[in-house]
Design a protein around this nucleic acid. Structure first.
Length: 428
DNA sequence: TCTGGGGTCCTAGGACCC
DNA sequence: TCTGGGGTCCTAGGACCC
């Protein structure tokens, strides 16, 4: 059995790099990308990192730095990032036989057996150069016998500029040297809580985790951390995913741009969330057997009365029909709505997802005995999706109509440079 | 004034059954 | 009134990831 080898390719400061790509004038300017509603920082360019801007800070906490250093702000532009991500992944898929797209900005490549053709390090540099040439985005590459070590190699490639953005960690001695220098909290799968608990046990560096007693780890934590420790020792424990596994739940939720006080406005928002969630559901060819709706006030605003409630329902027959899902969502909303609160967020979650073969007919539904109804819902929905894909004049559920009171704030949005004809970048 | 959105996996504990 | 062991299924909550 051949020892497997994986590469992790990860874009540098992905959202910030996407924005900078279309703004060469900001090449050396610190920029940050904000979360929905322009709430907090979700990405920073390297200049912004150098100024000490932390991930996740509310933007109003760094007003002083923004003014002082001329930091440029961008609202999240997921249309742009999604398209750029797709371009990166296409390039990777052309270079490696097996690619597992792990998130919007990173992918694992299976390099097993590649060494007969060229060194891993050379391959890593090729990947880096090709992505930069084809797409214009900088990436780092980490290579190792397990994915946890490949993540670590990538961390080193980003942290130490002398590596040129590529680290081959296939040599066990080199693995040990790096593990000894890295804090345990930097390891993939070790978050804040576990990191604190480990440090209380005197496990401070990654190598101490790698050398820890496995049964103790399992006992005091869980199999997850035990697997992480094994992976740090070069033993692969994570299954390879050639195709993304089917989703188990689909969520659409949002904080509102301004607080909502009326049921009517909440109904608009919930209708919208339910319709978007159901659209995603159809995109994956799935049907939902359950749905949940939640509403809540702003927990950070302690001066006003707080309320947070959710309700869910199981469908007699799994559905992917927006009309059915929206109707159920509105019924749930009305059951949990209470007057007199400032609502700040709500959402719709679909669960118990199955493909078409898992849909059981409802014994009492007329469609089962009325041939003219059978298949109508599917046809109507696919026509609706088709229109929405192709044109700018969208088809909506009636209750979504009108200017959205719940719309989020996006005061610093960049153009859809790559996905809208009207917003193509212009070169003078 | 102001704090994202969307997911997955694991465990513990209770209900229920034989 | 007291008394067993073992299994399954479901849910809630916590931890993690990007």
């Amino acid at each position: 059995m051949k020892q497997p080898v994986f590469a992790l390719v990860d874009c540098n400061n992905f959202y910030a790099s996407c924005e900078k790509l279309f703004r060469p004038d900001l090449r050396h300017t610190p920029i940050v990308v904000l979360s929905n509603n322009d709430g907090c920082v979700v990405a920073r360019s390297k200049e912004a990192k150098a100024l000490g801007i932390k991930m996740g800070v509310p933007v109003h906490h760094i007003k002083q730095e923004i003014r002082q250093h001329g930091i440029q702000l961008f609202s999240s532009n997921y249309t742009l990032y999604g398209d750029m991500s797709h371009r990166v992944m296409m390039t990777l898929e052309a270079m490696a036989p097996r690619v597992d797209v792990y998130s919007i900005d990173e992918a694992f490549l299976d390099l097993t057996g590649l060494e007969r053709l060229m060194s891993y390090e050379n391959f890593g540099r090729q990947v880096k150069d090709t992505v930069y040439q084809n797409v214009g985005l900088p990436v780092c590459v980490g290579i190792a016998p397990t994915r946890t070590l490949a993540k670590l190699a990538n961390y080193a490639a980003k942290k130490y500029p002398a590596t040129g953005g590529v680290v081959d960690l296939s040599d066990p001695a080199r693995q040990r040297r790096l593990l000894a220098r890295v804090p345990v909290g930097e390891i993939w799968g070790v978050g804040r809580k576990i990191s604190e608990k480990l440090q209380a046990m005197n496990i401070v560096t990654a190598i101490q985790l790698a050398d820890a007693d496995l049964s103790t780890l399992r006992q005091r934590f869980s199999v997850v951390l035990e697997r992480t420790a094994r992976e740090l020792n070069g033993v692969p424990c994570l299954p390879w995913e050639d195709a993304p596994p089917p989703k188990k739940q689909i969520m659409c939720s949002r904080s509102f741009g301004q607080p909502i006080h009326s049921l009517a406005n909440l109904e608009e928002a919930v209708t919208h969330f339910a319709a978007r969630a159901t659209e995603k559901l159809r995109g994956g060819g799935q049907y939902a057997g359950e749905l949940m709706v939640f509403i809540r006030t702003n927990p950070f605003k302690t001066t006003v009365p707080q309320y947070s409630q959710s309700a869910s329902v199981r469908l007699v027959k799994a559905s992917q029909d927006s009309r059915v899902i929206v109707q159920h969502a509105l019924n749930l909303l009305r059951s949990i709505y209470r007057d007199g609160y400032e609502y700040s967020k709500s959402g719709v979650m679909l669960g118990e997802l199955t493909d078409a073969s898992g849909v059981q007919d409802d014994l009492f539904e007329t469609a089962a005995i009325n041939p003219s109804e059978s298949g109508r819902s599917e046809r109507l929905m696919s026509v609706m999706d088709e229109i929405n894909r192709k044109t700018r004049a969208k088809v909506y559920m009636a209750r979504e109509a009108g200017p959205a009171v719940y719309a989020m704030r996006r005061g610093h949005l960049s153009p859809a440079y790559t996905t809208a004809w009207g917003e193509l970048p212009v070169v003078w």
